[in-house]
C-alpha cells in the first residue's frame, strides 16, 4: 500500500525519534555511572573550589575581558573609520592590521606580549595591562570588521539627508550613522564579546599569582589538587554564567532599540 506524502513524513520522523530513544537508553545502561560521578560530580572536590571560583576567578575573567573589549572597541572603531576613509594609506594600514591580527592565533599574541615585548623593549606591564592589550589587539581586528559592516549597512539616503542639512562628514557619522549602526552590530558584537571571554583563558601563559587566576586556570589548578574533573566542570559552568546572559542582554537591547524606532519614543515637550 503506497503511503501519502504526509504519512511518509510521519513515518520518517517516527524512525528518527526511535533511534534517539534507543541511543539514550543504551548510554544510560552501558555508562559506568560510578566512575563518571567520581570524575565529574565529586562534591568533595567541588567544595574546595568555593567560594574562590566565583569571588576571584570569575571576577578576574570578567575584568580581563572587559578591559580587553573596551580597548578592542576603541581600536576597532578607529580601524573601521580608517577602512572607510577616502585616504588610501589609512585604508591600507587598517587592512594590514586587521588581516594580521585576525589571521594569527591569539596564543601567539599573548606569548609575544608576555615574553617578547618585555625582552625586546625592556618594558614590563602589570597583568591587567598585558591582558587588556593582548585581548584588545586580537579583539579589535574582528570588532573593526563588524563595525565597518554595520556602518555600511546604514542606508546612503540617511547620510545624504544629513549632509544636505549642512552636517559635516564627522557630524553625520556621530549623529546619524553610528546610532543607527549600533542596532545592526549589536548581535555580532555580542559574539565578539563571548569569543573574547573565552580567549581571556590564554592569560595563564603570562604566569599568574593565585589571586590573578581566571576561570580556566583556576579550574586546572583544582584538577591538579583534587584529581577530579569536577573543578573543570565548575569552571565551564561559570563561563556559561557570563556568556548566556550576554546573549539575552543583546537580544533585549536589540528589541528595546528596535521598539524605540518602531513604536515611538516619548519626547519631552
Amino acid at each position: 500500500m503506497a503511503m501519502s506524502r504526509r504519512q511518509r513524513a510521519r513515518a520518517v520522523r517516527g524512525v528518527q525519534y526511535a533511534v534517539l530513544v534507543v541511543a539514550v537508553v543504551l548510554l544510560v545502561v552501558l555508562a559506568d555511572w560510578g566512575t563518571i560521578r567520581h570524575a565529574f560530580f565529586n562534591m568533595e572536590a567541588a567544595s574546595t573550589q568555593f567560594p574562590e571560583v566565583f569571588t576571584s576567578a570569575l571576577v578576574n575573567t570578567v575584568i580581563y575581558t572587559a578591559l580587553g573589549f573596551g580597548l578592542g572597541l576603541g581600536i576597532g572603531l578607529v580601524l573601521a573609520l580608517m577602512k572607510l576613509s577616502s585616504v588610501g594609506p589609512y585604508r591600507w594600514l587598517a587592512t594590514l592590521y586587521i588581516e594580521f591580527f585576525r589571521g594569527i592565533p591569539a596564543l601567539l599574541v599573548f606569548i609575544a606580549l608576555g615574553f617578547g615585548v618585555p625582552l625586546a623593549f625592556n618594558l614590563r606591564f602589570d597583568i591587567y595591562s598585558t591582558a587588556a592589550i593582548a585581548l584588545g589587539l586580537v579583539g579589535s581586528a574582528y570588532i573593526a570588521e563588524t563595525l565597518r559592516a554595520g556602518i555600511q549597512a546604514v542606508p546612503p539616503g540617511q547620510i545624504e539627508a544629513a549632509r544636505s542639512l549642512g552636517m559635516s562628514q564627522t557630524r553625520t557619522t556621530i549623529t546619524v550613522v553610528i546610532p543607527q549602526a549600533f542596532r545592526i552590530i549589536l548581535p555580532p558584537l555580542t559574539n565578539e564579546l563571548i569569543l573574547l571571554t573565552k580567549d581571556s583563558s590564554l592569560i595563564y601563559l603570562l604566569g599568574l599569582t593565585r589571586d590573578e587566576f581566571e576561570l580556566a586556570k583556576f579550574g586546572r589548578e583544582g584538577l591538579n589538587t583534587t584529581n577530579s574533573l569536577t573543578p573543570i566542570l565548575l569552571a565551564g559552568l561559570a563561563y556559561l554564567i557570563i556568556t548566556v546572559p550576554l546573549g539575552y542582554l543583546s537580544r533585549y537591547l536589540e528589541r528595546r532599540t528596535g521598539r524605540k524606532q518602531d513604536e515611538g519614543l516619548k519626547v519631552t515637550a
Binding site: 539616503g157 540617511q158 545624504e160 539627508a161 544629513a162 544636505s164 543607527q180 519626547v267
Partner: peptide, 25 residues
Amino acid sequence: IDKARRTIGMVFQSFNLFGHLSVLE
C-alpha cells in the same frame, strides 16, 4: 560646502527621515 548647504533645502524621493529619531528630533 556645509555652510552653503544650510541655505539649500533638499527633499528626497524616499523621504530619508532619520529612523532613530522622533519627528521632532
